[in-house]
């Protein structure tokens, strides 16, 4: 089939602020879908709550726009029910690294085959500008008028220590590169993290496109070995002066879906419902 980007676009226009980083993520995702020629009927995009979580509405695919921080369990349930689907989770840093952090860690250790794109802008945008889990120490926001006292979470380092098998960081100011990371994530068998620096032009006046461009460098260009976990840890901790972009780490491990004994034969969706007479008899036998 002749696949066009428009196939994946819904009729709705994004409601993000002009200049929002999330436009770049949407465009990169659309191009990635086109490149992989995924049939929209077999694609489910799951999101939580926040500006970035509105993304599924701008796509032509199945979508589930759930509640704050719980997109990962919903995506997991979908994958377990039907592993033939491509499942992508999209959300923000508050959603995934704050209220939903527990699910993020557990999905990674399970190596559920989903691609998780986090539009990380280090601020709560939709609630009009409070500190987020990735806000830098000292950042002044509405909820921290004298500066954030906590240290930010490091999602890449968390992913490395939680067993994720594809860990990357992109920048919405470079959609071409971001598209490559998303393509890689979707193709990867297992849990893929695409942490995207996606500036909030309205509420984060510190971590701007400019701020990021001044610091960003390409891991690939510096010859980073994506099989080397220790090197990946070191890169994950670079931030203040130089910020690495690209693939930090990749490895192959069986996915949860492949390992669950109940899924060995056929997907849950394709199984017949109910019990045969013989099965009923066998089950009852236990209670006699």
């Amino acid at each position: 089939m002749a696949v066009e980007v428009t196939m994946y676009k819904s009729e709705l226009k994004p409601t993000w602020c002009p200049g929002c980083g999330d436009f770049g993520v949407l465009n990169a995702l659309l191009k990635a879908l086109k490149e992989l020629e995924i049939d929209p009927k077999d694609l489910v995009v799951v999101s939580g709550i926040g500006c970035s979580s509105n993304l599924p509405h701008f796509l032509n695919a199945y979508g589930f726009h759930g509640i704050h921080g719980r997109l990962i369990p919903v995506a997991t349930g979908i994958r377990l029910a039907n592993p033939e689907l491509t499942v992508i989770a999209t959300g923000g840093d508050g959603d995934g690294y704050g209220i939903g952090l527990g699910h993020f860690v557990h999905a990674m250790r399970r190596n559920i085959d989903i691609t998780y794109i986090v539009m990380n802008n280090a601020i709560y945008g939709l609630t009009t500008g409070q500190a987020s889990p990735t806000s830098e120490k000292g950042m002044i926001t509405k909820s921290t008028p004298e500066g954030v006292i906590e240290w930010p979470v490091n999602p890449v380092a968390i992913a490395l220590s939680s067993g994720a098998t594809y860990i990357s960081r992109g920048f919405s100011g470079d959609p071409k590169h971001l598209k490559e990371l998303i393509v890689g994530g979707i193709q990867h068998r297992g849990f893929s993290l695409v942490d995207v620096f996606s500036p909030c032009v309205t509420y984060n006046k510190v971590n701007t496109y400019q701020w990021f461009r001044e610091r960003a460098y390409s891991l690939e260009e510096e010859g980073h070995d994506t099989m080397d976990m220790i090197a990946a840890y070191q890169r994950a901790h670079e931030w203040d002066d130089r910020i690495p972009l690209g693939l930090f780490y990749r490895t192959d491990k069986p996915t949860y879906e492949e390992e669950d004994p109940a899924l060995r034969e056929v997907s849950l969706l394709k199984q017949p419902l109910g019990l045969s007479e013989a099965q009923g008899k066998e089950l009852l036998e236990e209670f006699l």
Partner: peptide, 27 residues
Amino acid sequence: YGVVVKQTEDELAAMNMVIGASFAGVR
């Protein structure tokens, strides 16, 4: 019997996982 039994990290995950699986068409 081909029934996935998933012990989750918490009840938030359990309920949301049920919703995801059900959305995808299984009981």
